[in-house]
Amino acid sequence: MATMVAGSNAPLTAENPGLAGVMVAMGWQTTPSNGPQSELTAMAIVCGADGRAVTPEHLVFFNQLTTAGGGVRFSEAPQARADVEQIDVEFSRVPAEVAKIAFLAYVDPELRGPGTFGAVRSAYIRVARPDGSELLRFDVPQAHGERIKAMMFGELYRHREDWKFRALGQGYENGLAGVAQDFGLAL
């Protein structure tokens, strides 16, 4: 198991021959509040070579569990683990046109006090084998959380014939709207 820092990358299939897929798990803790509180939602965006979503519908989250091309699936995180959300990637079923899969969490833009990442602690993303054994982990640094409404945790990307993972930790002050604009999503 390797711990990553923001901006670093690590090979997956090159270092782990026979790795057919990975489980990407994300987790965080939210400071409890008596009033409306931030509700983080995990999302994965399936992107083409231009870095934008293959189509405006190419994302998975709790209300759209998979994409038309397949290979990326939103799953329930087992309660035995600390993970909040889990997304499974099966490399052989990911269409060839897909160059990367971006993993992020956003604060749900609810009308009543949507909140920010200011109330979020101990956010992380980890990449594990399908059996759950951990390959990589990135603890997302806490910085300017009170201004951030969406956060790119990391991305899986193709490198020649292999798959690699990059840790990101980049925040969006304009939240999901900014993410949708950057990736060309239809929400």
Binding site: E57, N63, Q64, E110, L111, R112, L185, A186, L187
Partner: peptide, 12 residues
């Protein structure tokens, strides 16, 4: 509302 519209934010 498609699954993306029906899962984000508020319906006002």
């Amino acid at each position: 509302l498609n699954p993306r519209q029906a899962g984000v934010g508020s319906l006002v």
